[in-house]
Design a protein around this nucleic acid. Structure first.
Lengths: 347, 347
DNA sequence: TCAACTTATTAACGCGCGTTAACGCCGAAT
DNA sequence: ATTCGGCGTTAACGCGCGTTAATAAGTTGA
């Protein structure tokens, strides 16, 4: 490709002029794959001209003319403060970019303020800036999502929402949590505390808590709310919750912390109290963040394949965009327990 | 705002019809702030019509007509695999979103494959999808950046590059590293190892290594290359580097690890060897990732205000976009050392 | 009363491209 | 010689909006 000055934008018309054909022909060469209604000769002339001029189609004009934005949106409901501490965002973006790049789409990142969701979701679509969206960390109390579901807009939820007819991709948080707690039960723990990953309005927090309850119930252990604390995503909150638990000392031998991020804080609190995991207290996390393996002690946890989830969500979204009829689909991805050194048999 | 069906897109013409004015008037009400050439009466009629119809301007059409994309791009050179483990991405995105939202712009995330940079940077701009870009983790060997600099395209580097005339925002990595190592020197350490944050082609790695050398030189200590290892962003590499150092045992009492992320792995390797920080080995990190505070032991480190940097970069970029004359500006942000428990006086 | 300005509004063009419908061309069939 | 049917190509319209230049209406001063 030749280097040309950028001062004047090169349009398809310039290419057409140079190739000695009409602009329509240029457009056909570029877009209409199948139809061989373009002779090999002219096709080559056009391609040569494109190379020579360094022509790049104006995506904006393409979008306007084709009535599709050539972009999808990653929409987060959390404020920048929370976004900044979202451990999985890099993995998710990495996964999305991977898929998006292959299909020549762009990725738009949007943040929606809590409270204004109802209007914003619609605006995003009406403004034609994106063809569809992937929604992160949905909250049960997000009324905008309910409306969105009735709008027949291509959208995929990363996460679970009860009673929604939006398509979604998620792992089975409840089953995974049950598995994690099951691991503790197998090691003869009976008094098992729980620190949630977030407030209960987040569906993942709810699901994981339910998994915890499931496991207890199956083992014939009564649920004791004195053993439960509600964290708020970050290590700080985990530290506080753990400190509180140790303070009140409800006599427990293990903890299920529904987020590694929170667990890092919890582990710190345990050490601060002069205790040791797993000798004094077994800890199971959830998420398998990159640092879990290098925590002290290395954290037993449930692996959350965020990148894989993101890819799946993206592929699903692309499907929805392609097929105009919106059929709802829920996809559940398997997870597994990674056993490391933070849990031990109760003696 | 009334709810209306979305099947038919509502255009400015529809608003004009309902308000009984021309489309131009609608456009003026929406865009021309200053000129009071619109009477209060018609202005109100238009606004009412907009509300009633739930009209949302088509950003794509706006972009085409106004010749500006109403969006900026966050461009990363690293592959999705690396993007997925970029600790600061959430903070950066959070910072950018914060600024971008206030100015009614959008944020586009792009990933550029190593090797194809030269063409891609230009394409991004030529395609008119973005008005300017913020470039992450620049590499010295990125020839595309050199070309970009000569293109008079609004662009801001997050990081430092020698001999570039692209605007940039960064902290003074070299001075900060020197400060970190200085802290170890103050504690009477003399044999101080260094594990870099990344390969030396990344300017930040180079700068931090230089800061390490500066500190040594000022203290009259000869630089010993046997004490230096090159990590690769992630904890795994930190673990390996530390293991290697301990293996070869070049008799050192402290380590400067130029990335907390890497340091998490290094700490793990220290524990694995049955050693304790800071009793056996003092460790200073760099970055102050959210988990540094909760590491075992809590990590002494240099605070990297990524969100603040991102905001500064974004504001600078917006300036560049606004003023058509591209004046280069380099902005350096102060950093500070956070002293925690991973370093101790050498006895 | 009429010219000289404002002020309020709009017709008309262009942004760059996708796409439909129509065109001219050439060889084969009538 | 005339008709027909692909094949290759293009003129022309539209996507929704920003913006300029021109028009219509209203105000002032002599």
């Amino acid at each position: 490709m030749e280097e040309k000055n950028l001062d004047k934008t090169i349009t398809a018309q310039d290419v057409a002029d140079l190739a000695g054909v009409s602009r329509t022909t240029v457009s056909f060469v570029l877009n209409v794959e199948k139809r061989e209604s373009i002779s090999e000769g002219t096709r080559q002339k056009v391609i040569d001209a494109i190379d020579q001029l360094g022509y790049v189609p104006n995506i904006t004009a393409q979008a306007l003319a084709s009535r599709s934005a050539k972009a999808i949106g990653l929409v987060m409901t959390r404020s920048p403060r929370y976004i900044a501490s979202d451990t999985f965002l890099p993995q998710i973006i990495g996964g999305l970019l991977d898929v998006v790049k292959k299909t020549n789409l762009s990725l738009l990142v949007e943040w929606v303020e809590a409270g204004e969701q109802i209007t914003v979701y619609r605006k995003l679509i009406q403004a034609k800036h994106i063809d569809g969206m992937i929604l992160l960390t949905p909250r049960e109390d997000d009324r905008g999502l309910k409306e969105l579901a009735s709008l027949e807009v291509p959208a995929v939820l990363m996460g679970t929402l009860t009673e929604t007819n939006l398509s979604s991709v998620d792992l089975d948080n409840r089953a995974a949590a049950k598995m994690a707690v099951g691991h503790l039960l197998e090691q003869n723990h009976r008094r098992i505390a729980c620190i949630t990953n977030a407030g209960i309005s987040f569906s993942s927090a709810q699901e994981r808590l339910l998994g915890y309850k499931d496991a207890l119930e199956e083992a014939g252990i009564v649920y004791d709310q004195k053993l439960v604390r509600y964290a708020d995503f970050d290590p700080q909150s985990g530290f506080a919750c753990m400190q509180d638990l140790l303070e009140e000392d409800p006599d427990f031998t293990a903890v299920f912390v529904a987020s590694d991020n929170v667990a890092m804080g919890a582990l710190s609190a345990i050490r601060a109290k002069g205790l040791q995991a797993p000798a004094d207290l077994s800890v199971v996390g959830f998420d398998d963040i990159p640092w879990a393996k290098f925590a002290s002690p290395p954290l037993t946890t449930v692996h959350l394949p965020a990148q894989k989830l993101a890819k799946a969500a993206c592929l699903l979204l692309l499907d929805l965009i392609k097929s105009d009829t919106v059929q709802i689909r829920h996809q559940r991805i398997e997870s597994e327990l990674i056993v490391r050194d933070s849990t031990a048999q109760l003696v």
